[in-house]
């Protein structure tokens, strides 16, 4: 298990120590090492992309060969992946065909997925604003203050609406958020230190 645990721990410790020193002290050698470490991260990510692609190909090739349910979707995925990769490798990301695919296929599809949020926010709001408890009632009142304060109607009705909305956002909301952020930041520090010092090993072999 040496290669599975000790080497990754050594790498984590070295890289972590470099980044921590770079955060606190101004020193050219350490700054250079930190910059190199970040470049290594990009290189490793590039190699890992091939691994990810291989995983996708393996799963979907098997589905196609076994003709499992909706195998035609796998054909579509594999074909898109191969075409996109071929165009990208031969022409680069600034190539005419790559840009064509990006702007006319990928971007509209991404925008479509993102636009679902508009509908989902409405349905989530309906669920959140059902007044069943005192907390839900307080939430509803706060939401009403913020929403009406941000509309022209609210301003026209009473000039106190925008102020009350801002008060909820700047005082009540910020106070709650900061409490969560402080707790989360401490949790993140704890887990990061454990990983850097090799005290957290569950991710290395799946066995603590």
């Amino acid at each position: 298990m040496f290669h599975k645990e000790q080497i990754p721990i050594l790498i984590s410790l070295t890289a972590g120590a470099i980044m921590i020193f770079d955060f606190f002290v101004k020193q050219a050698t350490i700054a250079n090492m930190a910059s190199q470490a970040l470049k290594w991260n990009i290189i490793i990510a590039a190699f890992a992309t091939a691994l990810g692609g291989a995983n996708l190909l393996r799963i979907h090739s098997r589905r196609i060969s076994r003709r499992t349910a909706r195998w035609h979707l796998s054909v579509l995925l594999v074909a898109s992946m191969v075409i996109y990769a071929a165009v990208g490798v031969t022409q680069g990301p600034q190539g005419v065909n790559y840009q064509f695919l990006w702007q006319n296929l990928f971007s509209p599809l991404s925008a479509t997925m993102f636009s679902l949020n508009a509908f989902f926010i409405a349905s989530a709001a309906v669920r959140a604003f059902r007044i069943r408890t005192i907390q839900a009632a307080i939430l509803m009142v706060c939401a009403f203050a913020v929403m009406i304060g941000n509309t022209g109607v609210g301003v026209a009705l009473w000039d106190g609406f925008p102020k009350s909305g801002q008060w909820v956002m700047n005082i009540v909301n910020v106070a709650g958020m900061r409490g969560i952020v402080i707790g989360a930041a401490l949790g993140a520090m704890g887990i990061s230190l454990r990983v850097i010092l090799g005290l957290e090993r569950g991710h290395l072999s799946g066995v603590e």
Binding site: I44, A45, A48, L51, G52, G53, H203, G206, V207
Partner: peptide, 17 residues
């Protein structure tokens, strides 16, 4: 993330073991 994928595989496989 493709770089996290192998670690995830290892965690799940380890738990099954």
């Amino acid at each position: 993330r493709p770089q996290v994928h192998p670690v995830t595989e290892e965690v799940v496989r380890g738990a099954y073991v």
